[in-house]
Design a binder for these strands. Structure first.
Lengths: 138, 138
DNA sequence: TTGTCTGCAAAATATTTGCAGGGAA
DNA sequence: TTCCCTGCAAATATTTTGCAGACAA
């Protein structure tokens, strides 16, 4: 059920958002269970974890890909750039690390925030997908 | 003094590590002051902030560059890959975001952890620089 | 004096964990 | 019964903040 919640929301939700979503359908669920299962799911590779300032986010997509984050409203969407396997190879050879992969996060201001010059309310979408902003960070 | 501490430690220290370092020289300093000044310094661009699971890390280098993290001991070092400005350009054009830049974090197992199969003690160095491991994460 | 910065402690946020109970095998 | 998973609450960990005092301009 938690896995479904992550997969259904393509908005890279935080653990708290997933908790709220699941609770709306199963009101007795606890945060502990959500965190425990998100950890399990990410270890199993069913969901992907995004390191972000403030709180982790989760991604339903299992393939390697990059992300794009608005530094104003904190919304995250997928970046239109192909994963560069060649870099992993290069770093492996140069460092001796057993490279598992890499993460890339683009940062900038989304079109909406650029216009509004203010933190937007709580709706809206990425250039090509429905996402939910946060409106938190300064 | 806090800026010096970050610059002196080329090991991408956490706020706590910086606090301990500064306190060893100025025992009356408080965590609040360290956090406040790290935030100031990163806003001024004097230090760089690294988003990591668990806790933020700080980097004295001001130029754009990538990082490499051992998923076992949690040590971080600089990655031997040049920053790809072309990607920022591409994402700007494709998304309409006002791109400020991107972060890249390679992940893998460092040579020492690969050998020891265990979390190493508290010494050691990156392939080419002295760094301090964490030995925290599972 | 006025404004800025600090130490201290409490608060806020995010996540993990101990424990007893419930349900499935 | 046994084992695993859950809810609940307390505990951790990290970072921020309110406040009163110290220091410099």
């Amino acid at each position: 059920m938690i896995l479904e919640a992550v997969r259904k929301s393509h908005a890279h939700p935080s653990a708290e958002q997933i908790y709220l979503e699941v609770r709306s359908r199963s009101p007795r669920i606890s945060r502990g269970t959500v965190y425990r299962n998100l950890n399990l799911l990410s270890e199993m590779g069913e969901v992907r974890r995004l390191d972000m300032p403030g709180a982790e986010r989760f991604d339903w997509r299992r393939e390697d890909h990059y992300h794009l984050r608005c530094t104003v409203c904190n919304r995250v969407c997928d970046a239109p750039v192909a994963y560069q396997h060649a870099l992993d190879q290069a770093v492996t050879e140069e460092t001796g690390f057993r490279i598992q992969g890499h993460r890339m996060m683009f940062e900038g201001v989304c079109p909406r925030c650029a216009k509004k010059k203010q933190i937007p309310a709580a709706d809206g979408e990425c250039p090509a997908a429905g996402e939910e902003p946060d409106g938190e960070r300064e």
